[in-house]
Design a protein around this nucleic acid. Structure first.
Lengths: 340, 340
DNA sequence: CTGAAAGCGCTAACAA
DNA sequence: TTGTTAGCGCTTTCAG
């Protein structure tokens, strides 16, 4: 007993396959006599017919599939974003194909090629770097792209990101209000929009609030990782930099900061306050629970998917950049400075 | 400029499409003159030809796609398992389609139907319950299935799980060695194999080690969630149950236990030791860092994918159940009891 | 070893 | 409103 095809349904309903096709497709149902349509639907139901999307795709040159390109699904930032994507794609009849690049440009190229060869209708990309030739190339080829969480330069593609600048302003403001004047920014990679937007906003806010401006109060990292965060903080100390608080470029860097503090026998928040960025899960269970700037993960994913679907529906729609609001979540890792 | 098709390649190489197809497919390349094959390959490369998997799928009735059914990708248990799956699927030319059921049977049915209508070649399922009619039905339909992390009863399907019993034995043994005699098991749902296997192993080990056997020392949960873990521990207290240590059914239940302790002003590990299960990320950053039984997430996913690919290749291969070893990771949440 | 021909299941002109 | 016809890009008999 084979899976029934459209032919079987047509036969059962006593019509031609073309008619059956039209009757079953909501967009063309209106072209068909209501009675016939009903007859076909009934036949389809009774046979347990489900259309074969592969055949449809071959004909329509649409796979109803979109590629989701992540650095690493294992980074807790991404699962909620992916859920936002899926939750938007599924009702629209689309599915997401997830790939991980591990931040390796070669792997990224291979994975995206494989996605493209699978005829994905568009790409949601979370691995964008500011200077990203591959993206330029894809865009030139007419591949539909929406960036999440990061942007790129010199390229007119849609992007959905948290409002990094506002978030950092809030973070620095929170610490300033507590009385901190020497705040270290553990900065993410300058190759990413997230990294540089946040460091710029940090500098701007420090100036605005007339806190201590000192170039040594920015500790750069090459990766968004705990290890690199810890390394950066230790490097700051060894060059004699003093500070009473840390604004980390993201939560992982904040965790690295925790490690560095522990390694030096320092306590958070007694000796140093720490604030993270992103609001990843379980931050409330840390020792101490981490104050952070939370981003709307799910909404970011959902919005990106929505924008991509729109772009697929209407190829001439201009690209758009969306900034989603962040929120300060105060926990126990921030407090007035000891001497304050 | 359209994407080149096999026809274009054949034309460029001066052969028939059939020959080009044979030359390009490793499995049939041997049927073709080595020279012609080379000529075709060269033509393909110079045109930048990539085969259209949709057309191939339509012909071969294989989508090179497998469905991955999770309760919720956002549960930190799953991302590393999914990576294990992807890392095995990708080199084999397969892709995974991930869906989330949120533990809702209706949603599960809808999602699996959608996967099946997309012609997936098999399913990796992480949502199995002991009694699971849908699974029985799918199995009867001949859908290729591998279970991860959980098993089901009365059904001859392959499964890859951690060695739950051994893990629990290790956990209880660790606490016993520290001197604990009244240990509470915060038990996962009895509808899941994981839940009942772990509770059984707990009871067996308590008996073997001649610790306090008391039915009240098992606190059942309806869900694998922090909230329910906290609730179960509070319930144990309110019924007057005393204990100096907790073996949680998984890390999330352990986190719930942390919450309950904090709510009662109790300290871990000073007042109560806690041990988790799974070894999810960032446990080392908790307050206090959580001792746990770590499972080989990545390997579980990889093994499941491998078994599914084997089953697809050879439909008559008998089903197989694999237990993967766990390991005790000692951190700061376990210590000798106060009075001990 | 290679070509001819058919067809996977569906949709989209075009006719009627 | 419905049927006819063709074909998406590929693989696979079957001849030659």
């Amino acid at each position: 007993m084979q899976k029934p095809t459209l032919r079987d349904v047509a036969q059962a309903a006593g019509v031609h396959t073309a008619t059956a096709s039209r009757a079953l497709n909501p967009k063309t149902r209106s072209m068909v006599n209501a009675n016939t349509a009903r007859r076909v639907s009934r036949a389809a139901k009774s046979l347990g017919y489900t259309p074969n999307p592969i055949a449809r795709s071959l004909k329509t040159a649409r796979s109803l599939t979109i590629g989701v390109v992540l650095p690493d699904l294992t980074n807790p930032l991404f699962p909620p974003i992916v859920r936002g994507i899926e939750d938007t794609l599924t009702p629209a009849g689309y599915s997401g194909l997830i790939v991980n690049t591990d931040n390796d440009p070669q792997r990224e190229k291979a994975q995206i090629d494989s996605l493209l060869s699978r005829q994905v209708d568009g790409l949601i990309i979370a691995t964008a770097r500011l200077d990203h030739p591959l993206l330029t190339e894809l865009h030139a080829q007419g591949v539909k792209i929406v960036l999440v969480n990061r942007r790129t330069e010199h390229l007119d593609v849609s992007a959905v990101t948290p409002d990094d600048a506002a978030g950092i302003r809030t973070a620095v403001g929170h610490l300033a209000r507590l009385g901190h004047r020497r705040i270290l920014h553990v900065a993410g990679p300058a190759t990413t929009s997230t990294g540089i937007t946040r460091v710029r906003a940090f500098r701007d806010t420090v100036r605005e609030l007339e806190l201590d401006e000192d170039p040594a109060l920015v500790a750069p990292c090459a990766f968004w990782s705990e290890e690199d965060g810890a390394r950066a903080v230790r490097a700051a100390w060894s060059s004699g930099t003093e500070f009473t608080a840390v604004v980390a470029g993201n939560d992982l860097l904040a965790l690295g900061t925790y490690d560095a503090l522990r390694g030096r026998g320092l306590s958070c928040p007694d000796d140093v306050s720490v604030i993270g960025f992103n609001g990843m899960p379980f931050l409330d269970k840390l020792g101490p629970p981490l104050t952070t700037i939370a981003i709307p993960h799910h909404r970011i994913g959902a919005e990106a998917a929505r924008m991509l679907l729109e772009a697929i529906d209407d190829p001439h729609r201009p690209s758009r950049s969306v900034l989603l609001p962040t929120s300060l979540v105060v926990r126990d890792s921030t407090r007035a400075p000891a001497g304050g």
